[in-house]
Nucleic acid binder design. Structure first.
Lengths: 217, 217
DNA sequence: TCGCAACTGGAAGAGGTCTTCCATTTCTTG
DNA sequence: CAAGAAATGGAAGACCTCTTCCAGTTGCGA
């Protein structure tokens, strides 16, 4: 980059290694989740562990590098759904899309249900998706299809609900996830007017979903 | 036990240690889940790691010893719900009970969403609960309150859905879990007649939920 | 083509988790 | 009270995961 005290551009072999690490991490995270040993990513990328660590000093940096594209796709799907002529169809399709990507990519499933405050690019995309989702919800309500008491902050509840059934390669769980989604979508329809328990305070909910180094916290 | 070559009954101090291990495990599992280091259980029980290992050679044996009582309570709750004069109320109360115990006990939450084929006592209780649950469903349907296409095998889907929001001590997630449950219960009502995606084959679903030594499988 | 800086990666070290040994302790019975 | 068996638990050993060192390799620019 052209700055005062201009650094030498990275070596070509170093750029190739970095690209291979990202590709390997995408594959390994998709199949096994974001908590796999870093040695597994290094092995798949055919680099040394030190090379991986030098390129991505923390697991969270690797996660952001891998998933900010997927999160951009997620934001694009939200935008497309919001632009749908039929807002309820757009809403249903968007929720179904979420369920599908959660199931196909274990790592992204975890990322969708976890906040990474330090991963600014990732969180910016998530927030962009959320803003469109709010517009989509308002349009679906205005169309009289989505129940009025549905909150945009119910989205993480849906993601957490379907998350438990998302496991790549397991068709029974995939069917289960779609069925669960079927139930939920029916309950989101405007024809349901029964009272609902109150929603959690969004800030507290999102704080509960923040990534910690220890998965059991 | 009175057998040929009758063994000496266990020493009193050994029985006290075993009881302390079970109590410690119950506490530690409830707060941190069933994957905590065994050293943590031993520390809380104030015994050596070897003493813990000799009493419970595998983590799964400890899990069964700890949770078969909770699973018996679960079976009792199912029986009580089934005996309720109002079957829909019984059904709703039973589901709400599940959500509550999932939230209060992280370990039991995991046990409710995981099969342990080798833990026969545990699985016998779970199956007893399930048989009552089937009766409860049939009564709620006969009363015209529960939708006809609700399957007993939807129960694990509910458990998995609410599982993702069950984390002891986090009130925001507890509220979220109750709200999610509110949505689901409304979709279970007989007034919802929209078509649902098919259910997974129960045997395949339960196989997918079997406990493996590696949590990421 | 060569000098030199960027880059590499195997391995040592640290810390964690589980398993098992065995010297020591404790409990029970006569 | 003593003998002897049951029981104990700290620690060594094995394995896993991450961090970082540094000798060696490679790429780039003059």
């Amino acid at each position: 980059m052209a700055t005062q005290g201009e650094q030498r551009p990275r070596r070509a072999d170093a750029e190739r290694n970095r690209a291979r690490i990202l590709e390997a991490a995408a594959t390994v995270f998709a199949g096994s989740g974001i908590d796999v040993p870093m040695s597994e990513v290094a092995r798949q990328a055919q680099v040394g562990i030190a090379t991986l660590m030098r390129n991505f000093p923390t697991r969270e940096e690797l996660i952001e590098a891998v998933f900010h594209h997927a999160m951009a796709d997620y934001a694009a799907a939200a935008a497309a759904a919001t632009a749908s002529p039929d807002p309820w169809q757009g809403f249903s399709d968007f929720i179904a899309y979420l369920c599908r990507v959660q199931h196909e990519n274990r790592g992204f499933n975890q990322v969708l249900t976890t906040m990474f405050p330090a991963a600014e690019r990732l969180e910016a995309q998530r927030q962009a998706a959320f803003r469109d989702f709010v517009r989509l919800i308002n349009r679906a309500k205005a169309a009289g299809r989505l129940r009025d008491d549905f909150s945009p902050h119910d989205l993480p509840l849906v993601l957490l609900a379907t998350s438990g059934l998302a496991r790549p390669g397991d068709e029974a769980l995939a069917l289960g996830g779609r069925r669960l989604l079927g139930y939920l979508l029916q309950s989101f329809e405007a024809t349901n007017t029964g009272p609902l328990p109150p929603a959690p305070e969004p800030r507290e909910l999102y704080r509960a979903l923040e990534h910690t180094a220890r998965p059991d916290r």
